[in-house]
Amino acid sequence: MAASAHGSVWGPLRLGIPGLCCRRPPLGLYARMRRLPGPEVSGRSVAAASGPGAWGTDHYCLELLRKRDYEGYLCSLLLPAESRSSVFALRAFNVELAQVKDSVSEKTIGLMRMQFWKKTVEDIYCDNPPHQPVAIELWKAVKRHNLTKRWLMKIVDEREKNLDDKAYRNIKELENYAENTQSSLLYLTLEILGIKDLHADHAASHIGKAQGIVTCLRATPYHGSRRKVFLPMDICMLHGVSQEDFLRRNQDKNVRDVIYDIASQAHLHLKHARSFHKTVPVKAFPAFLQTVSLEDFLKKIQRVDFDIFHPSLQQKNTLLPLYLYIQSWRKTY
């Protein structure tokens, strides 16, 4: 089996927390979720979201995140109150960019949308954001926290390059993509939290790379249903696996070995980020709550012996909000 052949990389499970039942964490995340308004986002309300009498641009960002990046939404709820709305805006910006690729039928249209967001970032730093909910909220975040323009532009530029429907040539190319998107998002989150620390940035770099790799793995069944495969070609070739094997949902050992190798790289990034947690300011830990969902996925895929098409991998963990709150309460990542 794939797991038994390579099992030495995987460390002990961390979500089991001995003695936790003896201490009762304060009510927090679930209460916040219940208090949030929840009407559906419609095209009509989106168009009017920044106008008078609408929910408001902040509510639009929150709803977009809740629907399109639920794990990011849950993590954002546990940030300090003064930072929450800015991170909602930042993550909503990322969602807007991420959904361009799947929402257009022609690359030219995707490039036009990316050009809109490039100009939007430029206009935000000229205090002239367009009348668009996410743009307005992002402008507020930039003004409030003096966010670095370079990180925002890196996210747009990398998403634009990724409009080509090509597999990553190697794991390094996937890591570079993750660094310029997910890690950049974390650098900006640290700025919102008021953290300027080399060790925190180092952790953000590795956690962002782990996030990018896990996202690529999780999306494999969806991409396969659209006749697309984006997994690193070098690892596929190493194990003699073709793109057609993934399109046919082949579950042979060599296919699972490909998934094992890729998942192991995410695991190593996560492990390395945690190896120097004592040197990272505690104030930075809330920015890294996504490690909970990353670890949850890596454990699940290990349990199914790296069968990327196993139905259990597509099921939401209903206990994730609780695990996130516990992680926040324990002040760790």
Rank of each mutant, 00 (worst) to 15 (best):
S50R: 08
S293H: 13
C61R: 02
R330E: 04
R303Q: 11
N250W: 12
A54Y: 15
S225W: 15
L138M: 12
S183V: 06
R226A: 11
F246N: 02
I192M: 12
E295I: 07
I308N: 00
N317K: 09
R150N: 07
K140L: 03
V229N: 11
G194S: 07
H239P: 01
D164W: 13
I308V: 15
K119G: 07
H267S: 09
N162V: 09
N146Q: 14
V46H: 10
T279D: 15
D307V: 02
R84V: 09
K107P: 13
Q302K: 06
L152D: 01
V280I: 08
K172H: 10
C126R: 15
K253W: 13
D102T: 10
Y323I: 15
E175L: 06
Q99Y: 13
D234Q: 06
I207A: 01
R227F: 13
G194Y: 01
D201V: 05
E175K: 03
L163Y: 13
K149E: 07
K107L: 12
R303T: 12
E175G: 00
D69P: 01
K143E: 04
I155L: 11
T318F: 14
R159Q: 05
A273W: 01
P221G: 13
F88D: 02
L174I: 07
N317M: 10
L174T: 00
Y187I: 04
Y70L: 09
R274M: 04
A47V: 13
A81E: 14
E137Q: 12
S76Q: 03
A200V: 04
S312V: 14
M233E: 05
V87W: 04
F288M: 04
I155N: 05
D102I: 06
I207V: 09
D307T: 01
A178S: 13
R303G: 07
N176Y: 14
C126E: 14
N146S: 12
E106M: 08
E71T: 12
P129I: 13
W55F: 15
V121H: 03
A48N: 15
E175C: 05
I207D: 01
V214I: 10
D165C: 12
A263W: 06
Q99D: 15
E82N: 14
S83D: 09
R68C: 14
R330F: 08
V95H: 04
V46D: 04
L190R: 01
N180E: 07
H272P: 01
N170R: 07
R303M: 08
G212L: 00
E137W: 03
Q211E: 14
K331I: 10
Y260A: 07
K283P: 12
T189V: 13
E175Q: 05
V104L: 14
V95D: 03
L231S: 00
M153T: 14
F88G: 14
H206T: 01
S312Y: 10
R66H: 08
D234V: 02
V282S: 12
R330Q: 08
D261N: 06
T148R: 08
S103C: 13
H272W: 15
R113M: 06
E106T: 09
D234S: 07
L138Q: 00
I259C: 12
L174F: 05
I192G: 07
S183I: 05
T148P: 10
V214M: 10
A178C: 15
Q314K: 07
F288E: 01
T215V: 09
T215A: 09
V292G: 08
Y60E: 07
E137S: 09
R249G: 13
Q243S: 06
Y125H: 05
A47G: 06
P133C: 09
D197T: 07
F93A: 00
V229L: 13
T291Y: 01
Q314L: 12
F93L: 09
A203L: 03
T181V: 15
L198T: 05
A167N: 13
K67T: 09
R169G: 12
R218E: 05
A266F: 01
V280M: 07
K196M: 09
L289K: 04
N94G: 05
A141N: 01
E71G: 07
Q315K: 09
Q182W: 15
A210G: 05
T215S: 08
S86R: 02
A54K: 09
K140Q: 07
S83A: 15
H277F: 06
A167V: 13
S103G: 15
C61V: 13
R66A: 08
H206Q: 04
N128A: 15
E160R: 05
A273Q: 00
K253M: 15
E137T: 03
Q251R: 12
N317A: 11
F288S: 01
D197R: 03
A273D: 02
K299M: 09
P281W: 02
A263P: 03
S242V: 06
T148K: 11
N170A: 06
L90F: 03
E122T: 10
R113Y: 05
K149G: 04
P321A: 13
R227T: 09
S85W: 14
K166V: 15
K271D: 15
V280F: 03
A89D: 02
P129Q: 08
V214C: 15
M237R: 06
L198W: 06
V142D: 02
T215M: 12
K107Y: 11
L77N: 03
P321Y: 03
A54F: 15
Q211F: 13
